[in-house]
Simulated scan of single mutants.
Amino acid sequence: MSWTDERVEVLKKMWGEGQSASVIAKELGGVTRNAVIGKVHRLGLSNRVTSTTAKPAAKEKAKTQAKAKPAAPTTPAAPPQPAAPAPETMRVTPPAVRKIIPAGQPLPPQPSANEISPEALAKVSEVEKTAKKISLMELTEKTCKWPVGDP
Rank of each mutant, 00 (worst) to 15 (best):
T53H: 07
G149T: 03
E141P: 10
T32I: 02
K67G: 00
L28M: 06
N47H: 14
L45P: 00
T32G: 06
K142Q: 15
K67R: 11
T52D: 05
Q81I: 14
P106C: 01
L136F: 06
R7C: 00
I134R: 08
A25V: 02
T143N: 10
T52K: 11
G149L: 06
A113W: 12
S46H: 11
E9K: 11
P147Q: 10
H41A: 10
T75Q: 14
M137Y: 09
E27S: 13
A25L: 01
K145F: 05
K145V: 07
S112N: 13
P85R: 13
P111Q: 14
T32W: 01
I101D: 12
E138W: 05
E138C: 04
P106I: 00
L43N: 02
R33G: 00
I100L: 15
R42E: 12
L139M: 09
K145Q: 14
E60K: 12
A57I: 09
V10A: 05
I37S: 03
P73D: 15
P118G: 09
E141C: 11
T74F: 11
I24M: 02
G44S: 02
P108G: 01
N114S: 13
V10S: 06
G44D: 02
P106S: 06
K67N: 03
C144H: 04
A120Y: 10
I116D: 02
P56K: 08
A84Q: 11
S135K: 15
V31F: 01
E60G: 03
P95V: 08
G38D: 04
E119Y: 08
P82K: 15
W146I: 13
P70S: 10
T140R: 02
K133F: 04
P118S: 10
L45A: 06
A21F: 05
V36R: 00
T53N: 04
P70M: 07
A66E: 14
G16E: 13
A131T: 10
G149W: 02
N47G: 14
Q81H: 12
A71F: 12
E60C: 02
E9V: 03
V23G: 05
M90G: 04
V31G: 00
P111F: 08
V40Q: 05
P147S: 12
K39F: 01
T130V: 13
A54W: 05
E126P: 00
E138Q: 14
E27T: 15
K69H: 11
G16P: 01
T75H: 09
N114V: 11
N114L: 13
